[in-house]
Amino acid sequence: MKFSVLGSTEVVDGGAQLELGGVKQRAILGYLLLHANKVVPTSQILQAMWEGNPPPTARKMVQNAVSGIRRMLAANTDPTTTPLLRTHRPGYQLRVDVQAVDLFVFRSLVRDGRSAISEGAHALGAERLREALSLWRGRALADLVETGICWSELTALEDERLSALEDRLDAELACGRHREITPELEVLTATEPMRERLCLQFMLALYRSGRQADALRVYRRTREALIDGLGLEPGRGLQELQQRILEHDATIQVPALVG
């Protein structure tokens, strides 16, 4: 049995996608998967499901959803995985092999990629991070987000994704792939105009591609977005890069290709 949260909530058993029940049951399953192998207090589930204002029948609704999830897990036909939803005071614990949950596979690959980069193996690191990012099929728990759910865990997960993406782009730059990633960075910076690291990477990729004027335009656009959106000037890193581009600083030209 395989579980997916990096996109719409999905459970697959023997190649077949399972029916997950109503919105509350899907949401409780998704929430427990985000906290897999940890005890999640019932009070925390109630807070997540009803934003601190649960109806009188809320605990019964949680119990019914848990029963439905247990029936689904009992249908597992994969002998290599034994998912189990336990009642564990003060709440519930979803016991599952982390290799069966795409979120934890993603995190493992990200750790491998970052470890490779820290050892100077930038090409291998970029490959591992690309593999990790390929697991995403949209926003985490996208089907639940469409119903109005906006848990802090989902915001943190999106930041994890973007951080892994930025690490991958740094590795690509270190490998001299600035031209290849320029179109991707153009889209990313349009989507995340105030994410300074992406803007810095875009400026550097443009400059290394011989597009100094375009790189400086990206700086001006980012500065305007930060001032308008947050009332802040760009950070020191962006300001220094702008100055170095203006000075044609040779130390930010294409690096010697690294592994």
Rank of each mutant, 00 (worst) to 15 (best):
R26Y: 06
A36M: 06
I28Q: 10
R95L: 08
H178G: 00
V40G: 09
A225C: 10
T189N: 01
I117K: 05
L157W: 02
S4V: 05
R168D: 00
T57P: 03
D143T: 08
L154H: 14
R139V: 04
V101W: 05
Q99K: 12
N64T: 12
A121N: 15
A140R: 07
I28A: 13
V254I: 10
E131C: 02
P79K: 01
F104R: 03
Q44V: 14
S152Q: 15
V101D: 11
H248C: 09
Y207R: 03
S4R: 14
H35W: 09
L6N: 05
Y219W: 06
V66P: 04
H122L: 11
R195W: 02
L34H: 07
L73N: 01
S8E: 12
L200I: 15
E158A: 13
G22N: 14
H178P: 01
T155Y: 11
S4K: 13
G148I: 11
H178D: 03
R244K: 11
L188C: 01
T82H: 15
L173E: 02
A142N: 11
R111L: 01
L84D: 15
R70D: 02
Y219C: 00
L129M: 02
L133H: 00
S67Q: 12
T182F: 00
N37C: 09
V5Q: 08
L257P: 12
V105A: 04
M61V: 09
F106C: 06
D214M: 01
E10S: 14
A121S: 13
P54G: 09
D112R: 01
I149W: 15
L157T: 12
V258C: 09
S118H: 09
R26A: 02
L85K: 04
E119Q: 13
Q17I: 10
V5L: 14
C150H: 15
E153V: 14
E240F: 03
R95P: 01
A213F: 08
V105I: 06
S163M: 04
A74T: 07
E224P: 03
Y92N: 04
F3R: 11
S4N: 14
L216Y: 05
P56G: 07
A256P: 07
Q93T: 12
R244C: 06
E160H: 06
Q44G: 07
S43F: 02
E51C: 10
L129Y: 01
G176T: 05
A256Y: 08
Q25A: 10
G231R: 01
G231H: 03
K60M: 14
W50G: 07
R223P: 03
A225S: 13
A190I: 01
R111A: 04
V254Q: 07
D102W: 08
H178N: 06
P83S: 05
S43R: 12
L169G: 02
V258A: 12
I69T: 08
D97W: 05
G68L: 09
T81I: 13
Y92W: 10
